[in-house]
């Protein structure tokens, strides 16, 4: 068994006095898609945002426990937050391209890292847009404002923007919940392709989506992990009664 690429141990998170996560232990394997499911407010998005320290920005958040990335505790004070976020990219629920051209969106992460070489930038723009399966649709309009494209295209542009900085892990917070089924299907196919090169952790409300694309699934309830196992087992023969009720649609 390979060592997990990300490993959370005993992770507690407090918003002020409210404890949102209770002792989370989760290991994520490289080159797999792991899905986090559970009812609204169960803490799955909060947990996801712990993995690239996006919760740091919220006032009054306190985190205890550790999150290890390649064996390094990402909450240790020596960690370089810029490097961490380059290695662990994030795609948000709402497509959020910057109000610039597609080209400027994709190259943003590289430019702030100091890449100036036009040829290199061009190559990376093409590569990441192809990986995100949106190249064919927008290759003639790379200098148009990214906001001019459809929601599904915008979301894939956002995925390409993350891919451009070559992360090893991509966190996705309900990336298809704001999109129509056809766009969602395109993104799901994209993710299955990306799995070869990247580790993907995806929060989703869509149980079919979790069962279609993920290798492992974690079921969250009220800030705790109820069950974490191979996706096929989770959906066919879960150990826990609550998991079975949830995946079969009896609540949630």
């Amino acid at each position: 068994m390979d060592k997990p690429i990300i490993s959370a141990q005993n992770l507690d998170l407090f918003y002020g006095d409210f404890q949102a996560l209770h002792g989370i232990n989760l290991d994520f394997d490289a080159n797999k898609i792991s899905a986090l499911i559970g009812p609204s407010g169960c803490g799955k998005s909060t947990f996801l945002r712990c993995l690239n320290r996006m919760n740091d920005m919220i006032d009054g958040v306190k985190i205890t426990g550790t999150v290890q990335f390649h064996g390094q505790d990402i909450y240790s004070p020596q960690v370089n937050l810029v490097e961490l976020r380059k290695s662990i990219g994030m795609v948000f629920q709402q497509p959020n391209p910057f109000p610039f051209s597609v080209y400027d969106n994709i190259t943003y992460g590289l430019r702030i890292a100091g890449v100036r070489d036009k040829q290199q930038l061009d190559a990376i723009v093409e590569r990441s847009l192809k990986q995100a399966a949106v190249w064919d649709e927008i290759k003639d309009n790379l200098y148009d404002n990214a906001l001019a494209f459809s929601g599904g295209q915008q979301q894939r542009i956002c995925i390409a923007r993350v891919l451009a900085v070559s992360p090893s892990v991509i966190l996705m917070d309900e990336p298809t919940s704001a999109l129509d089924p056809i766009s969602s299907a395109k993104i799901e196919n994209t993710l299955l392709e990306l799995k070869k090169d990247y580790t993907i952790i995806i929060v989703t409300h869509n149980l079919q989506q979790a069962s279609r694309i993920s290798d492992k699934t974690a079921f969250f309830m009220e800030g705790r992990i109820v069950e974490y196992d191979d996706t096929t087992k989770m959906f066919v023969n879960p150990d826990d009664k609550q998991t079975e009720d949830y995946v079969s649609g009896r609540f949630g």
Binding site: F92, A113, V162, V165
Partner: peptide, 26 residues
Amino acid sequence: PKYYRQASLALGATKWQTIWKVVLRA
């Protein structure tokens, strides 16, 4: 919008880069 700032920070930008290259530009 707040999500421009989040997207920028999540791409590994510093706060200053986010202000200069995203917020002021937008």
